[in-house]
């Protein structure tokens, strides 16, 4: 008995000791005497090369040969971390010049941190650099080798040329027809069928023009290398956007209203993307746990789905109705 008390007392003591040690190690307030001052522009624009100058001094004396880094707080998929974007070493005047290229359209909190050679911690210098409005294209690079005249215009010319010849040949055929109109020596039972072939040829000519227009329009409607503002990336991570597509297949509402909850559930299980993480029939996959083995009560299942454990997204009532969730449950139960 006593033994146990002593043991837990010792455990508590060790824990406190450990906590204090950790606090001491990470506490930035421990002064090494080195101070960082920074000179940087207030606002920059996307694509610009930005120069950040750090000045290190100790008791008024410049620090030479010190390593510093420029970092910023980045977050991706819910994770947040400090990312180094430039490093530098101070010269004899204590100045380190760091250059980075502004790619993001907004900067989080940036810091200039001291990396060494001293082991003692140094208070980082916090700065913010604002970014001028940048448009949707965040980062643009010069693609390929540009050869004069070898470009979209040439492509359009070639294609137009080919279609011109096709159209010309169609026009000749129409002229064949017009030429034969009304001359009654041959035993034509009926004339006047010209309108159909004329119509067909007209359609061919319009198609020709249309195809050329598609090509000419192409750089304007989509990628425009000179004017990146035309460029719209496909939004990839929108869940439940305003323009959700309603159509056939899985998106057809009626496909999940057959009256058989299990069949409906299987459709909904795919429709809401559960399969993407939990595997084709709920047997688990790389990301999601198996659902069918120990599915438990509907209450627990519903709670899990609504709350989204461990990085799974939350599926609230507005996304998956209670009725549909019950169908998914029925399907998984049946699979199990």
């Amino acid at each position: 008995m006593i033994y146990r008390h002593i043991l837990s007392g010792a455990r508590i003591a060790i824990s406190i000791l450990a906590a204090v040690t950790i606090l001491m190690i990470v506490d930035p307030a421990v002064a090494a005497g080195i101070e960082i001052a920074v000179g940087a522009p207030d606002t920059v624009s996307v694509g610009q090369e930005v120069e950040v100058k750090a000045v290190l001094s100790q008791n008024g004396v410049p620090v030479e040969g010190a390593e510093v880094a420029l970092t910023y707080q980045a977050s991706l998929a819910g994770e947040s971390a400090r990312v180094e974007i430039a490093t530098g070493t101070t010269d004899e005047t204590g100045i380190a010049v760091m250059i980075y290229e502004q790619r993001a359209d907004a900067n989080g909190e940036m810091q200039v941190v001291y990396l060494g050679p001293d082991a003692d911690p140094v208070e980082p210098y916090v700065l913010t650099i604002a970014v001028e409005s940048a448009g949707p294209q965040l980062y643009e690079f010069e693609a390929g080798v540009k050869i004069p005249f070898v470009n979209g215009t040439l492509v359009i010319l070639v294609i137009s040329g080919v279609w011109f010849l096709i159209g010309l040949s169609a026009v000749y055929l129409v002229r064949v027809g017009w030429d034969g109109r009304g001359t009654s020596e041959a035993s034509t039972p009926e004339d006047g069928s010209m309108w159909i072939s004329t119509l067909l040829s007209t359609v061919a000519v319009i198609t020709a023009i249309g195809m050329v227009i598609v090509f000419i329009r192409s750089p304007v409607s989509n990628t425009h290398i000179k004017d990146p503002h035309q460029y719209d990336r496909t939004p990839i991570a929108y869940v439940g956007v305003g323009f959700s597509y309603v159509g056939f297949g899985l998106n057809d509402e009626s496909s999940a209203q057959t009256g058989d909850p299990i069949a409906d559930g299987s459709v909904l299980y795919f429709k809401y993307g559960c399969a993407a993480c939990h595997g084709l029939s709920g047997r688990g996959a790389v990301v999601g746990a198996p659902l069918v083995d120990e599915i438990g009560s509907f209450g627990g299942f519903s709670e899990d789905t609504r709350e989204g454990p461990k990085g799974m997204s939350e599926y609230d009532e507005a996304t998956i109705s209670e009725e549909n969730l019950q169908k998914i449950y029925a399907y998984l139960k049946d699979e199990g």
Partner: peptide
Amino acid sequence: RTLSVNWK
């Protein structure tokens, strides 16, 4: 009739 475009 249609496809022979009045061929004489």
